[in-house]
Amino acid sequence: MSTTPPERDDAANRELTRAKFYKAEQEAGFVESQPRTTPQQQDPAYRLAFRDTDFLLREELRPVRFQLELLKPDMLLDEAGIGSTLVMYGSARIPSPEMAEAALATATTPEKKAVVERLVAKSKYYEEARRLAFTASRCAVVEEGKRQFVVCSGGGPSIMEAANRGAEEAGAESIGLNIVLPHEQAPNPYVTPHLSFQFHYFALRKMHFLLRARAVAVFPGGFGTFDEFFELLTLIQTGKMKPIPILLFGADYWNRVIDFRAIAEEGVINFEDLELFRMVETAEDAWKHIVEFYALDCD
């Protein structure tokens, strides 16, 4: 093995402020350039720990993976100049208006047809999500050199797709926070590629949804949407997070699936907690509330 340093002792190396240790990327390059001719060099134990995927995937390394999944999106979003986000939650099953007819064709029984018809009736929310994302993206608020109210979705289909699509149609970038699932999936085509992230841990994904969130729009959805929505309510109700606009799209849907007032009447939340969110029907109503909340110079 050669002991000759990659950089000789020249004037640059004698600079007082110059770092004296090589960066990890450089050291990894040194290793890759070396022939692996001995049994010791060929054994997995000899791999650099941070380049050893098998090691990083061990059960004992879960805390390290948590930290990596926290750091990577945060650092890249900061480098991309993202100051705050408009987060949009919602179902992955509601079809876009142009896909409504195809969705109806999938119903093979009267029972399935009734369910699909209810989903198709919600395709109007695809359009509202698209319009809200378009409006917010056109506002282009910039404070302290950072872009504000950048649209952020779960990166998947349906309502999430509508959010990223609306931003793209406004000529703006948008974020997608995808999650690894047992079945095959991919980010929707409207997510900005360098702002498209994939998560292993739901908990870290939900954290990143809210770290930069300055407003959240919640569209009709299932367990995942409920989970995200109620965690947000809990954080604000308990004082762990400062209040932000929470816009709940579709009063008929939400009042049918959740009796919010009954929860308060049972005494397990305060009636004032029902003011943590606002029911809206249109993108205009939602954006107007956000503009008034933050006194934005946008229309």
Rank of each mutant, 00 (worst) to 15 (best):
P182G: 09
S153N: 04
H200R: 14
R261A: 06
L71F: 12
R58L: 14
F260V: 04
E117I: 02
P193K: 08
L56D: 12
F66L: 13
Q42R: 09
R51E: 13
I246D: 03
A203C: 07
S91A: 04
E231L: 12
L211K: 14
S33K: 10
L71S: 11
R58E: 15
G239E: 05
D273S: 11
E266H: 11
R65F: 09
E25S: 14
S153Y: 01
E161G: 00
E127Q: 06
L181P: 00
R47E: 14
M207D: 08
F197N: 12
S91E: 04
A186M: 11
F209Y: 13
T108W: 13
L210W: 02
A286R: 07
G145N: 04
I290G: 12
A295L: 04
I246K: 06
F223M: 11
K206M: 06
M207L: 15
A136N: 08
F249Q: 04
L119M: 11
P5I: 10
R212W: 03
I236N: 13
C139D: 08
S137Q: 06
S91L: 02
P6W: 15
Y253W: 08
F271K: 08
R205H: 10
A103C: 12
A28C: 06
L68K: 13
T282R: 07
K146Q: 10
G83E: 04
V191F: 07
S153H: 04
N178C: 14
E292K: 14
R214V: 01
V64L: 15
D74C: 11
P182C: 09
E275W: 00
M99C: 05
R8K: 15
L235P: 01
D252H: 13
V120P: 01
Y89H: 09
A105K: 15
V87C: 10
L276T: 02
N270L: 12
G145D: 06
D43Q: 08
A286Y: 08
